[in-house]
C-alpha cells in the first residue's frame, strides 16, 4: 500500500460535497451519474470532486466494459481515524489527570 498522505486526505475531506460522496460510497460501488444525483451541480463539477478524492487515495475507479464504477478505499480512512483516536486518547489521559487533581483539591478544602 502506498504511504498515506494525511494532509491530502484531510484536505480532500474538508469539503462537504466530497464528504457526502464518501458517505454515499459507504453503501457500495457507484457510477459518476449516481454520485452526481443528490447534488445541484454539473457533472464536470462532480467529476472534479471525484478526482480530488482519487488523488488522495480515498477512492478507486474500476474499468468494467463501458462503465467505471467508483469504490471507496477503506484503508486511508481507517488510518486517519486511528490518528484521531490516538490523539483523543492522549488528551483523554491528560483530562482524566486534570479531573483527579481538581477533585483532590476539592476534598482538601472540605
Amino acid at each position: 500500500m502506498p504511504d498515506i498522505d494525511l494532509n491530502r486526505i484531510f484536505s480532500a475531506l474538508s469539503d462537504p460535497t466530497r464528504r457526502a460522496i464518501v458517505a454515499q460510497l459507504r453503501n457500495g460501488e457507484a457510477l459518476i451519474k449516481d454520485l452526481a444525483e443528490p447534488f445541484d451541480m454539473s457533472l464536470p463539477a462532480v467529476i472534479k470532486h471525484v478526482n480530488i478524492l482519487e488523488e488522495a487515495g480515498l477512492i478507486v475507479r474500476r474499468q468494467e466494459a463501458q462503465r467505471k464504477p467508483i469504490r471507496l478505499q477503506h484503508e486511508p480512512l481507517k488510518e486517519l481515524a486511528n490518528w484521531l483516536q490516538d490523539y483523543a486518547a492522549m488528551w483523554e489521559g491528560r483530562f482524566q489527570q486534570l479531573e483527579a487533581i481538581m477533585k483532590d483539591l476539592e476534598k482538601d478544602q472540605e
Partner: peptide
C-alpha cells in the same frame, strides 16, 4: 472526521483546525 476516546471527542472542522 470525528473520533471519541473516553469522554473526549476530537473533530477536524476544516483543514486548519482541531476541535476538542
Amino acid at each position: 472526521m470525528k473520533q471519541t476516546f473516553g469522554a473526549t471527542t476530537v473533530t477536524t472542522p476544516n483543514d486548519h483546525q482541531i476541535l476538542m
